[in-house]
Design a protein around this nucleic acid. Structure first.
Lengths: 212, 212
DNA sequence: GTCTATAGCGAGATAGAC
DNA sequence: GTCTATCTCGCTATAGAC
């Protein structure tokens, strides 16, 4: 990103290089429309530049998509994974942190869960190769759950099912957002208020479900 | 569907009219690839017929897609909705029936949840118009939850959050199937065994979470 | 009702001027 | 680095023979 680049964009209020403008625009279009649904023209329009420039900065649509998918999936998985495998939280603390962090990230990036799941389903081979370093078995968490059962702190439960529950309760409302909004007849603002409340709700719900 | 039609297809073992073969093929391709990702050629190949025939039976790709989306969304929502709003089940029975039916339908149609959510996110206007008759506020269920709280049968809880929990715990694992399979390193068969177990697991999990 | 051939357009990608 | 113009191909859709 050169200086001449940046200064040319002051009219747009935000001080972004062309490359950054492309990223922002591509993020918006790809996360909404997916790889096959997105059009390079839409991204160019959104960025306020020409189609040819997209190819100048990123060789192809696929390359640009990979960039966006990588940053999106990293954002989603990295924080949660770190918490899932952290060594210095007990089980209940860990569940609380995971859920609060997970839902918070989704509030800030509501399109990402559906975006990732969509591409993961439509192109599993690509995603498996792409995410095999990012997605790991939650060994530490599973151990802690097993330990909690052995010590009689929580009910007997399949750790894998519990892990799926934690992820499901955090992520699904964002994936089903348009369905739930239609069903409940609520605005975006009301939906996000529900999700704010949901942080505490899901933590309590899970603790009540498992604790003895 | 004419007789000559049917008899021409006996070589395929299964006795399907051309129209039915198209539906079956379109269901497979659309649910996997989505509207924008699907190719009419792929559907024709899958059905063992020519592209032109697709247009003969269904005027356009969009029309064919609507057919598939409608049957898919109906299959998913109708049974669950009927249970949600049924008058002759108490709250605990109802939660049990909803979850068992929901997961069972998804075991039989594992691609449908991701299919519906994907299109709902990529084209919310279309979906809202399309599903506004199908998706209703779960009034009866919400009343029963409120009643359970008032009678001291269950903990105080936001009925809307509980409804989202029921749906999340049933649907999300199928949407995140490729992710979970990568994470756990399990086959399709093992995944479906997990989902069979999950029927009872989720019912118990929710009951434990809410009952006093 | 089913096929082959092709029209027609939209989209990704490139050439080349500035 | 950015633009306009254009190439090329793939895809939806239709025409028309059988």
């Amino acid at each position: 990103m050169t200086e001449s680049n940046k200064t040319a964009i002051i009219k747009d209020q935000i001080y972004l290089s062309t490359e950054e403008k492309i990223i922002v625009a591509a993020r918006k279009v790809f996360t909404k429309k997916g790889l096959s649904g997105a059009r390079m023209q839409d991204i160019a329009d959104e960025a306020g530049i020409n189609k040819a420039l997209l190819h100048y900065y990123f060789r192809s649509k696929d390359k640009l998509f990979e960039k966006i998918f990588e940053e999106g999936s990293k954002k989603m998985f990295m924080t949660v994974n770190a918490l899932v495998e952290s060594a210095d939280l007990n089980l209940f603390q860990k569940i609380e942190k995971i859920i609060e962090a997970h839902i918070q990230i989704e509030i800030e990036n509501p399109y990402i869960p559906a975006f990732i799941m969509n591409e993961a389903n439509q192109n599993p081979e690509f995603i498996k190769k792409f995410l095999q370093d990012t997605i790991k078995l939650p060994i530490k968490l599973v151990e802690q759950i097993q330990e909690g059962i052995n010590l009689g702190h929580i009910r007997p439960i399949n750790p894998v099912q519990l892990f799926m529950n934690i992820m499901s309760l955090s992520a699904f409302p964002f994936i089903a957002k348009p369905i739930f909004q239609t069903s409940f007849g609520i605005t975006d603002e009301q939906f996000f208020m529900l999700m704010e409340q949901r942080k505490k709700h899901v933590v309590e719900f899970i603790i009540n479900a498992i604790k003895l």
